[in-house]
Design a protein around this nucleic acid. Sequence first.
DNA 1: TCGTTCTGTAAGTGTTCACTTACATTATGC
DNA 2: GCATAATGTAAGTGAACACTTACAGAACGA
Lengths: 195, 195
Amino acid sequence: MARVSQTAERRSEFLPILAAAFAELGYRRATTAELAARCRVRENVLYRLWPDKKAMFIATIRFVYEHSVEIWRRVLDEEDGQASAAQRLLQYEARHVGEFGLYRIVFAGLSETDDEDIRDALADMYRRYQKFFADHVRDHRHGAGGPDAGLVAWAVIGLGTVASITRELGLVSDRQRARLLREVGAELLETSGGT
Amino acid sequence: MARVSQTAERRSEFLPILAAAFAELGYRRATTAELAARCRVRENVLYRLWPDKKAMFIATIRFVYEHSVEIWRRVLDEEDGQASAAQRLLQYEARHVGEFGLYRIVFAGLSETDDEDIRDALADMYRRYQKFFADHVRDHRHGAGGPDAGLVAWAVIGLGTVASITRELGLVSDRQRARLLREVGAELLETSGGT
DNA sequence: TCGTTCTGTAAGTGTTCACTTACATTATGC
DNA sequence: GCATAATGTAAGTGAACACTTACAGAACGA
């Protein structure tokens, strides 16, 4: 034997760079030449780490999910007696939504959904997000009535999505976007169950 | 002079076909060869109607907006003494959201937002949608308090977006998706203004 | 009927891209 | 120190794509 493989380390070294590139350029425009240049290696180095470009993209989707969940966990670990976890997540997003270009990667993926592998990776990511929020919504209400917490979680994801879109397209001011997430988000959490 | 030009008619003849193609394939995968084949003409025929592929896409975005607004107007014209216009729109979407692949075109556009023209076309489209809904939200409440109707309109758009995503990725059943739009949508309309 | 313009067909063209191959260099276990 | 496998450099390849050009036929006003 000679020289132990650094494959795993290199993968996690490059993933944030790939994520930034896919977020900035979208799937098609992020050419393998561009990805390699940003990683400061040649293309074939990337091809030793992943079988093809699609695999790089799917790995990026997973990375982005884990990255943002990690950030959220850190936010939740900060002590704050007043607000529930769900409220704190909304407040955090009110200030930082769209910051890391997560949604640009998701949009890129959503226009590639005729590819089964990409669709599966996205579906998996959304399921995890929804479960994450739904748990916190249920916790926020601890047992009280209201519409299905799962549905509210989807609505919160929708709120984050539209917030990112308005940011991306310059449709509303930062101030208004923060209000959107805080005020409408609070309403979603507080609703006492209609129909 | 000889032979009068049919340019305008042909454009509107092809637009629904282009819309279907972009919705099904996304921007990059909808190659000009594929677009032409679906229109049953050669590529250069399309290039006589629009200067380039981007112009075809932007024309499609506008078409899709006008198409869905026309449908909504028809829904609103049907008499229904009970429900407000906003409620009827939500009920309609609960049954038909994502049906025409509108959001796939939007997603395709959102991953091309580094192109100024595409970004502008999308921004314009969103502004119109938001105004359309905001007017109906205000009307629904006729003067009563609550969070800014403009913000609620954005939230409704978010709800429609996430509904389309869950449909696209097969994440929730049709039944649950209808509940999401009807129940959570109703909550958004009814909120009496928090903070 | 003639001339002009619209409309259709067919075959390029230059570029870009995902992915590959060939080979030189370097680190490390034995 | 030497064999071995990891790592780096450089060039290339075949396919796909946006867009073009050249030309033939068809409609229609004069």
